[in-house]
Amino acid sequence: MGHPGTGRVGYDGSRFGIGFLFLKTVLLSLMTLGVYNFWGRTEIRRAVWNAVSVDGERFEYTGTGQELLFCFLKAIALLIAIGLALLVLGWASVLVRSGLGLQLVLAAVYLILAVLAVAAVHLAMRYRLSRTLWRGIRFGLDGTTGRFVLCTIGYSLLTVATLGICLPLLRTWQARTMVDNTRYGTVPFHMEARGATLIWPWVLTLLLAVPTLGISLVWYRVREFRTWSASINVAGLTLDSRLRLGDVLGPAILLTVITVVFFVALLFPTIIEWLEVWRTRMPRPGANSASVVGIGIYVALAPTINFIVLGHTVLKASCETLAIGGALDAGPRLSAGNAGGR
């Protein structure tokens, strides 16, 4: 039994309401030495998920702060175990005066950190999808984290070897892998986009990045999103994004201006001090404490500022310019063992 019709995605989140959740998370995380961050992130996700709807039916996020905290503690325990093992190997290399052994240990540190960072991306997506419901039916992510890590490292090396030109291959492969392994209930997603079609737009973006003061980067991300969206289908349903550069350009420029002005204002005293040092040949001054504190405050508030100025607009424009067409040919697969599961 299909579900005919064409639908639109909606977003009615509050710019300052959700922005306040970001600010609340920062402040309470500082007061609790980071512990509240897990509950704050969960509250933000619930608000954002609930603000997005398809044909009037809202998404639901069922994750909890306790789950995020437990995952964090497991990650810390793993890092400690790996760190201790590498420390022992490093100490042994020092004792036997093996320079090669010490270099291999350092190389292992960087490799392990890279592997864990990539694995975290896949595992985080799996967790978020497993806690996302629409019409009471849960999403999921299949596939192995190991394959995702190995292929990502391979594409990353190719990107480095080509001085960044092959970045679309990496990003599109990651997106396609995520989408192809996503399911709604037992209904699979499929994505056909290939990164090769985005190589020349990316090269053009790099060439124009400086002359356009970064505007070409925004243009590319819009084109990338539209290319990816147009190649996704879900059991007969297709997506069509009409997102335009003009939909997000204004807020992107505003965020850039705010960031530049803020940092120039903060670093101005330090710049003056360095100019005075250069003029008088006096001893080099220490770091300006006001600048350091100001930068720290800005970094802490960056997620709030980013959402209020840019994130909200991007979410709203991305959702409201996305059309869903076709008929969902899912049959009874949707509800079989996938409804509820809270």
Score class of each variant (00 low, 15 high):
Leu69Asp: 12
Gly56Cys: 07
Gly341Asp: 00
Met1Gly: 05
Leu133Asn: 05
Thr172Met: 02
Trp219Ser: 15
Leu30Met: 06
Glu276Tyr: 11
Asp55Arg: 15
Ala302Arg: 04
Cys151Ala: 11
Ala85Val: 12
Ser93Leu: 14
Gly294Glu: 00
Cys319Ala: 12
Asn50Leu: 05
Trp49Gln: 02
Leu322Cys: 12
Gly90Val: 03
Gly17Cys: 07
Val179Arg: 07
Ala196Asn: 03
Ala119Asp: 07
Leu208His: 02
Val264Cys: 01
Val26Ser: 02
Met125Val: 01
Gly286Lys: 02
Val264Arg: 04
Ala196Arg: 03
Trp49Cys: 01
Glu224His: 14
Tyr11Trp: 08
Leu129His: 12
Ala265Trp: 01
Met178Asn: 04
Trp91Ile: 09
Asp180Ser: 13
His190Tyr: 08
Cys151Ile: 09
Leu129Met: 13
Glu57Gln: 09
Arg171Val: 08
Arg176Ser: 09
Ala92Asp: 04
Leu208Gly: 08
Ile76Gly: 06
Met191Gly: 15
Val257Trp: 01
Tyr220Asn: 12
Cys151Arg: 05
Arg131Asn: 13
Lys74Leu: 12
Arg171Thr: 11
Ala300Ser: 04
Leu79Trp: 11
Arg176Gln: 11
Ala108Trp: 05
Phe139Lys: 03
Leu95Glu: 10
Val261Met: 04
Arg342Tyr: 04
Asp12Gly: 07
Leu204Asn: 15
Ile295Pro: 06
Ile44Gln: 00
Ala107Phe: 09
Thr159Leu: 06
Ala161Tyr: 04
Ser93Lys: 10
Leu28Val: 03
Lys74Phe: 09
Gly13Lys: 02
Gly83Tyr: 09
Leu21Ala: 10
Ile112Cys: 08
Leu217Asn: 05
Thr144Ala: 11
Glu60Asn: 07
Leu208Pro: 08
Gly236Asn: 05
Cys71Lys: 15
Gly326Leu: 02
Thr6Glu: 12
Phe148Gly: 01
Pro283His: 12
Phe148Ala: 04
Met125Thr: 01
Val94Met: 15
Gly325Thr: 10
Ile112Val: 11
Ser29Cys: 03
Leu95Pro: 00
Val299Ile: 09
Leu243Asp: 03
Leu255Cys: 13
Leu310His: 02
Phe189Lys: 05
Ile76Lys: 10
Phe262Arg: 00
Ser291His: 01
Gly214Gln: 06
Ala196Glu: 07
Met31Trp: 14
Leu78Asn: 03
Gly146Asp: 10
Leu301Asn: 15
Ile232Ser: 08
Ile297Cys: 01
Ser93Arg: 07
Leu28Thr: 00
Trp49Gly: 00
Thr238Asn: 09
Asn233Arg: 14
Asn233Leu: 02
His3Ser: 12
Leu111Asn: 00
Leu79Thr: 12
Phe70Ile: 15
Ala317Lys: 14
Cys166His: 08
Ala124Thr: 10
Asn37Gly: 10
Arg128Thr: 09
Leu275Tyr: 06
Gly164Arg: 14
Thr42Met: 04
Ala193Gln: 03
Val299Ser: 05
Gly17Leu: 07
Ile76Ser: 08
Tyr11Thr: 00
